[in-house]
């Protein structure tokens, strides 16, 4: 038998405060999985980047958290309500920014997790899936 997966959690990203809410929800999920400090910090930092991106560029969105115990793995799915990204490869590159930031956010998030997928959804908005073994 594999371990039972914890119930997925869902955070609506509507205001700045929700980025902190997303971070602390993912942090709690990592704690439940007894993640190591470094693995947790790397994953939560990546979540902070994509949540801020969804809010700033996507006009808000939703973050769903899921966890599995065997193997111990945490995953998030984040989608936003924005127009999508014109050139995803360019957006992933460090230093690319449309918002006066450093442009290390998305590329940084990708480096911090085991799996990172980003795409424009056919129905609109950007979707990011990330997961890491913790």
């Amino acid at each position: 038998m594999t371990g039972a997966a914890a119930a997925p959690r869902r955070i609506e990203l509507k205001a700045e405060r929700d980025i902190a809410a997303a971070r602390s929800a993912v942090s709690r999920a990592c704690d439940e999985l007894q993640a190591s400090a470094l693995r947790k910090v790397r994953f939560v930092t990546a979540v902070s980047e994509i949540a801020r991106n969804a809010l700033e560029h996507g006009g808000g969105g939703t973050l769903e958290i899921s966890a599995s115990r065997a193997p111990r793995r945490i995953a998030v799915l984040c989608h936003d309500n924005g127009p999508g990204i014109l050139d995803i490869d360019q957006a992933m590159r460090d230093g690319f920014t449309t918002a006066g930031s450093m442009g290390k956010g998305l590329g940084g998030a990708r480096r911090l997790v085991d799996r990172f997928e980003i795409r424009n959804r056919p129905e609109g908005g950007v979707e990011v899936r990330m997961s890491s073994q913790v």
Binding site: R23, S27, V44, S48, R52, S101, M102, G108
Partner: peptide, 8 residues
């Protein structure tokens, strides 16, 4: 007190 420091 900061659990993480992100790029922002």
């Amino acid at each position: 007190a900061l659990e993480i420091v992100d790029t922002f």
